[in-house]
Every structure is written in C-alpha cells, then in structure tokens.
Design a protein around this nucleic acid. Structure first.
Lengths: 215, 215
DNA sequence: CCACAACCTGACCATTCGGTCAACATAATT
DNA sequence: AATTATGTTGACCGAATGGTCAGGTTGTGG
C-alpha cells in the first residue's frame, strides 16, 4: 500500500508536472491579456500565442474562456486575502495599518496585471465573483472593521469611520497598479524607480497615519 | 446678408436639433454600455438598442465604434478638468483641497459610468487618449502641484509630496465610482444613501486634511 | 513489450460583430 | 412644386472568435 502510493506518486510526477507547468504558463499569459484587453477584448488566440501553445491546448486545460478567466480572478483574490495577515496580530494602528499599506503597495507593484483584472471584474458588476464579494470579502471586511473599531475604542487612534478608512486604503494602494500607465506617463514615460515606489509608500503611510491621529 | 443668416439659422434649426438630440442619446447609451462591458465587450447592437435606434443609424453619426468611444472618453475628460476650478482660487489647502474632494466625490456619484470608462481606458494603456495624458493632463498636474508646493512653502500645510497627494485624491474619490458595485455589495446590496455619501465625503476630507496637517 | 490513459493539435464550424449600401423618408431650398 | 440635402433603415458581408473533434503523440502501469 505504502509502496504503491509511493510508486503512484512518482509515476504520476511527470504528468502532474506537465499539467502544473502548462496551467501556470496559461494562467500567467491569461492574466496579462485579460488585464490589457479586458474580458471581452481578450481572445483565446492571443492568450495561446503569449503562452506559446496552440489554442486547442488551452481548451484542454480550461474548458471555456470564462473558466480560465474565473481562475485568474480567484488567484488574485487569494493573494489579496493573504496580504491582510500583517493587519491582524498588530499591537496598534501604527504597525497594523502601516504594514498593511506596505504589503498592498508591494502587491500593486508585483502583481499589476492581477489588480487590473480584479478592478475590471468589479467595474463590470462582478459577474463572475459576486458570491465571493458577498461571503469572503464581506466577512473579511467585517473582521477588519472590528479591529479598527477596537483601536478607536481603546483611544489608539482618532474616531474615523472604519469602513471608509478601509476603502481609502484599498483605493490608494490599488491606484498605483490600476492607473500605473497614467502614473508612468506623468513620470516622463518611465516606470517608477525603487526610490519612487518607496517615496509613494511613505507618503501614503504618512498622510494616512497622521490622518487617523497616530503621528 | 443678416436676413439670410437669420433665415439660414432658423431653417437649419430643426436639423441641428435632430442631430444634437440623436448624438446625445447615442453618447449616453454608449457611455453606459462601455462602462458596463468595456470597449471589447460592448457591441454596437447593444448601444443601438439602449439608444432606441437602429444600428445603422449609429454609423451615420459616428463612423466607427472607436470614434464613438473616443467621443465618450473626451466628454468625461472635459468634466474632470472643470472640477479643478475649485482648486485654483482658494486661499489655502483647507478650502482648495476640501472643495476639490467634494467636487470629485460629487462627480463620482453623478457620473459613475464616465469614471469607469476612463479607468478602463487608462488600465488598457490609454490607446485612445494617450496624447491627452501627455499634454493636457501633464500640464494640469504640473499646475496643481505648483499650487500645493506654494502652500507648503508658505507653511500652510505639512510638507507632503504634491504629486503623490494628487494621486491619493484621485484614487479615493474615483474609487467610489469605479468600485461602486463592490461598495454597494458591502452595503447590504443597496446603493449609498445621501447620508452615506455625505459621510464618505466627510471621512475622506477629515483624514486627508488632518493628514496634511491643516486640522 | 503491450495496452491504456493522458496529452497534443491542425482543421473545421456555427455564431457574432463591425461596418456597408441601396432604397427610402423627411426636411430645407429655390 | 420641384429639387436638393439630410436623415433613416433592413438586409447583407467579410472577418474574427469561441469552441469542437478526430487522429495523433507521449507517458504510465502491468
């Protein structure tokens, strides 16, 4: 039994590796194309070309364009959720919100495509991930609002509506991904440098932390 | 000559009225459809149905789908530029930035479709209005940054990077339009009420104005 | 080595979309 | 009233797209 399982796992190794690698390549290409062209503007052929695979191969791994899109959106959602860990076990708003801003700015820089796909999905009425909004995101938001409210009650920060504070954090951090092209254009057509990203993060942190009365 | 011009103007009246009315109906429908489906996902047939006109009639007034889209984007851009008037002749950041936030929040509420079309256009690399970004928007930004820098130099507000402060203002105010569906979902599926819009605006104003050290 | 399953892909199809056009209707001009 | 200019529309077309499938290749277990 043990041996069988072992052998089975090893034998399956090659196949699963092929599958995992191809799915990864396809998802990466899809994320980029969906971000740059939107769901309607993206074509399976374009994604296939970018992935270096024949179009029919995409349909082998993902039955429909919508299924592929759905997976891309879900992957982004997962990354977002994990970013909130820094929020939880912080002693106060300075560390909690400060680290959350840093984490989200970092995601905006490293996953600009994903952020755009999410924005596009929500702007179009969230036809694919509406259930996520109503369950996971709603619970997540309620939990973080409670944390902020507790900080307020404990006198650790000024009484700011927790809900709108969260919206402000999302808006500012994601703006650097979603409107990256505009920001780049206003930066003489060049992407933000390391120093400029750091400057942006610090400015956001400073204004927000002072804005909630903890500086 | 005068009479001729007068007669000509009156005679032309009916025709120009028809043209203006139809263009308005088409542009309104197009703004909504482009916002909800993106450029690629929008179809001329859908816009025609929403406008209550046969599809061929759209092509009589706008030669191509792209020309129609271009006009929609330009209209939004105009609205945005006018919103900055409140910025200019303000004695200091409290009035200037405060009023600017109010004006932009108001636009987000009354023109959510336009804001989404703009966001979508920028996210896709601004293929249609890149020249606007490089000329009008760049000049506008430079001008407002100078105003903010002057306020800083005069000791009227804390030294905050003017560029990133502008980005923060754009991000937060437009978020309420672009992510309106998400906000609505997190508000028990209901649109924000008058009171809630007011609360959002006040929260943004409070955090920002305190964040730049003027409260 | 054989048989089975998983993987790959060129060719093909039905549908949809942006755009055209000829014929017609209405308003303006002479 | 006749003519011209402007507005209207159903029918149509070529191109592109999402998706299918039969037949092939490669890996896997016995």
């Amino acid at each position: 039994m043990n041996e069988n399982a072992q052998v089975s796992r090893i034998s399956k190794g090659r196949r699963t590796e092929i599958r995992r690698e191809n799915e990864r390549v396809i998802l990466d290409a899809a994320e980029k194309v969906f971000a740059e062209a939107g769901f309607g503007g993206a074509t399976m052929q374009l994604i296939a070309d970018m992935a270096g695979l024949p179009k029919a191969n995409l349909h082998y791994y993902f039955p429909t364009k919508e299924a592929l899109y759905r997976q891309v959106v879900r992957n982004i959602f997962e990354i977002w959720l994990h970013a909130a860990d820094s929020f939880d076990d912080a002693p106060g708003p300075v560390e909690g919100i400060g680290r959350y801003i840093e984490a989200k700015m970092d995601i905006s820089r490293r996953h600009p495509h994903g952020s755009k796909v999410w924005a596009s999905e929500v702007m179009h009425g969230a036809p694919v991930i509406q259930d996520y909004l109503e369950t996971t995101l709603r619970d997540w938001t309620a939990g973080r609002m409670a944390v902020i409210q507790r900080w307020i009650d404990e006198g650790k920060m000024a009484p700011v509506d927790p809900r709108h504070l969260l919206y402000m954090l999302w808006a500012m951090t994601q703006h650097y991904a979603d409107f990256g092209h505009q920001i780049e254009t206003l930066n003489h057509g060049r992407p933000l440098s390391d120093a400029q990203w750091h400057e942006a993060t610090e400015t956001v942190k400073t204004v927000i932390l002072r804005g909630i009365g903890v500086i």
